[in-house]
Structures are given as structure tokens and as C-alpha cells.
């Protein structure tokens, strides 16, 4: 049973993001890239299945892009058996549908029984990868998966709905799963281990040809949201802030013994 985890880099949304001068993309010059947080969950779930003996191997694959080597070495440090970088020659941002087409082409030369990826990413406004990849490969897919176990030729998954309701679904393999959360929190890879692997491990590469452009909605502009309600900021020294908060609570009648 070979598991493939598709991961990608995304701009670190904890940092300041600026809109580029032409207004059509974010400014990618000075931002740092991190592994999509949901891809981290997908990787964790795959690694757990391997450790439990339910799967034989975990291969991690990513389209080439800024920061991708770091992400792939980190995945190896966490316990992935192999890492593959898909070379494509396109400039970012790559539409998700084109990502799906490139990955589907690359997966022809990568043995796989089950494909994991994150349920969504910070910039997939044009559709989530798991259903698009499932459609491109003609495999079944399930989004919002929070648990996976493997049975004979099947993945049995839990798909989560609002309020904690879950559907237990059985899916014939091969299939694509969009992971919302792994069974346990993603593990940490020690920096020393990542550095060591950067010296000793090799990333495999698969080259795919450019795909014909898919139909897409055209970006008019990016902007920062205008607040529908602008918070009144409580400012000043720490004492003033605390007094300000208490007075807000008091006025709303939510202070104990005063409400």
C-alpha cells in the first residue's frame, strides 16, 4: 500500500501580506513560504498509517516553487520515505486546476494506491485540489476528512460536518482524500535533522509539460477587506487597557455579581 501526500507552499499568512502594484496578486517579493497547514495534517495522517503498519510507504510530492525544497526536506525529516519535486516551468500563482492537471500527469510515473492532500489552502479560491485532482484522475474523492483507516482495497474515512457530526464512508482505491485534521497533531521535525537531510538526501524530480490553460474567472483586483464594523480600540498603558476592558464588560452587564 503506497501513500502519496501532495503538499504545497503557501505564503505565511501570519505575516503581513501586501497587494502587488498591479493589484492582480499579492506581492510575492519579500514574503516567506510555509507548508500549507492542512497538507501538514495530511502528511501526519499518512505517516501514522505507515507507523501502524496499515501502509507500506509514504511518498511526498510537490510542484516546484519557492520554498518547496525546504518543505520536502521537512517532510523527509518527519518520516516520509521519498520526496518528489514536479518540474513544470510555470510562474506563480498557478491556478488550482492547472496544479491538478500537472500532478495528475506526474502521478502516472509515481506508484500510488491512495493520495492525501490538505482540504484547502490559503489561495485556492478557484477550487480545492482534492476534488479537482480526483476528477482529473477519474478517482473518487472525499473532502473534509478527519480519520482514515485502510481495509482490503478500501479506505474507510470519517468526513466531518458542522457541529461534530461525521459520516463514515468507504471509498474504493485509488482515491484522493482532502484532509481537514489528522488523528493526532502534526509532529515536529528537528531543524538539525532537516539540515542533515539537506546534505545527504536527494529530492527526486519528475518533469511534466505545460498544460493548456483551463477556463477560469479573471482576477480584477485584490484588496484588503473593509471592515463591516470597525472595532473601537482600547489603548493606553496596561492598567488603562485593563480598566477599559472591565468597563466594556460592566456596561454589557457581563461582569459577575454586577450583571
Amino acid at each position: 500500500m503506497n501513500l502519496v501526500v501532495v503538499v504545497r507552499e503557501v505564503p505565511d499568512i501570519q505575516e503581513e501580506l501586501e497587494v502587488a502594484a498591479d493589484g492582480k496578486d499579492i506581492d510575492r517579493t519579500f514574503i516567506s513560504f510555509v507548508m500549507n497547514e492542512f497538507d501538514e495534517q495530511a502528511l501526519e495522517e499518512a505517516l501514522v498509517l505507515k507507523e501502524e503498519g496499515q501502509a507500506d510507504s509514504v511518498l511526498v510530492a510537490a510542484l516546484d516553487g519557492e520554498g518547496v525544497d525546504d518543505i520536502l526536506y521537512t517532510a523527509l525529516a518527519k518520516g516520509a520515505d521519498e520526496a518528489v519535486k514536479v518540474i513544470h516551468g510555470l510562474e506563480p500563482p498557478i491556478p488550482t486546476r492547472v496544479r491538478a492537471a500537472l500532478l495528475a500527469a506526474a502521478l502516472k510515473s509515481i506508484p500510488h494506491d491512495l493520495i492525501f492532500t490538505g482540504v484547502q489552502s490559503a489561495e485556492d479560491w478557484d477550487g480545492q485540489l482534492a476534488p479537482l485532482l480526483g476528477a482529473a484522475l477519474d478517482y473518487p474523492w472525499v473532502e473534509v476528512v478527519t480519520a482514515v483507516r485502510l481495509e482490503d482495497g478500501l479506505a474507510v474515512v470519517e468526513k466531518e460536518f458542522k457541529g461534530g457530526l461525521r459520516a463514515e464512508l468507504e471509498v474504493r482505491l485509488p482515491a484522493v482524500l482532502g484532509i481537514q485534521a489528522a488523528t493526532k497533531p502534526p509532529r515536529y521535525a528537528p531543524v538539525s535533522r532537516i539540515r542533515q537531510l539537506m546534505r545527504t538526501a536527494t529530492l527526486k524530480t519528475v518533469e511534466v509539460n505545460e498544460m493548456s490553460p483551463a477556463p477560469a474567472a479573471k482576477i480584477r483586483r485584490l484588496s484588503r477587506p473593509v471592515a463591516s464594523r470597525s472595532a473601537e480600540f482600547i489603548e493606553g498603558s496596561l492598567d488603562e487597557v485593563v480598566e477599559g476592558l472591565l468597563s466594556v464588560f460592566r456596561n454589557a452587564g457581563v461582569l459577575r455579581g454586577e450583571g
Partner: peptide
């Protein structure tokens, strides 16, 4: 997108 920090305005083809 980007955790709600950015809005993308697109033209439906």
C-alpha cells in the same frame, strides 16, 4: 483568501 486577510474580486467569464 489568505485567512480572510485579502479579498479577490473576479469577473465571471
Amino acid at each position: 483568501v489568505y485567512g480572510g486577510k485579502v479579498l479577490v474580486e473576479v469577473e465571471i467569464p
